[in-house]
Amino acid sequence: MANDPSWYLNRPQGKSGPHTWAELQSLAAQGQISPQDGVWNPAAARPRKPGTGALPRGF
């Protein structure tokens, strides 16, 4: 999953990505992903919000 660059952030200022899973984890650790940002993968049905318990384990 970490090497798959198919993750996106849906932010109020616009979409960001593609990112690898490792990049998303790094952004989260640095506090650069906010609760308003949706995390999206083309295989997912809809964007997921941090802090909702809907993100895959490891985030």
Results as ranks from 00 to 15, higher is better:
residue 42 P to Q: 08
residue 30 Q to F: 00
residue 10 N to I: 13
residue 5 P to L: 11
residue 41 N to V: 02
residue 17 G to F: 08
residue 54 A to K: 12
residue 37 D to K: 01
residue 33 I to C: 01
residue 36 Q to C: 00
residue 37 D to W: 03
residue 22 A to T: 12
residue 21 W to I: 00
residue 46 R to Q: 15
residue 32 Q to Y: 03
residue 20 T to I: 02
residue 30 Q to R: 14
residue 42 P to K: 03
residue 37 D to I: 01
residue 43 A to R: 13
residue 47 P to L: 13
residue 25 Q to E: 09
residue 22 A to H: 09
residue 39 V to K: 00
residue 20 T to W: 03
residue 2 A to G: 14
residue 6 S to N: 15
residue 7 W to D: 04
residue 24 L to V: 10
residue 17 G to C: 07
residue 29 A to N: 15
residue 43 A to V: 12
residue 34 S to W: 04
residue 38 G to L: 07
residue 16 S to C: 08
residue 42 P to L: 04
residue 4 D to T: 08
residue 36 Q to F: 02
residue 1 M to W: 11
residue 39 V to S: 00
residue 52 T to G: 06
residue 32 Q to A: 14
residue 39 V to M: 09
residue 41 N to H: 15
residue 43 A to T: 15
residue 48 R to I: 08
residue 28 A to S: 12
residue 33 I to E: 03
residue 35 P to G: 00
residue 59 F to E: 07
residue 48 R to C: 08
residue 38 G to A: 10
residue 17 G to D: 02
residue 21 W to R: 09
residue 18 P to M: 05
residue 9 L to E: 06
residue 16 S to L: 14
residue 25 Q to P: 03
residue 8 Y to Q: 09
residue 20 T to L: 00
residue 10 N to K: 13
residue 48 R to N: 07
residue 19 H to N: 12
residue 57 R to G: 10
residue 20 T to E: 00
residue 17 G to M: 02
residue 45 A to S: 15
residue 25 Q to A: 01
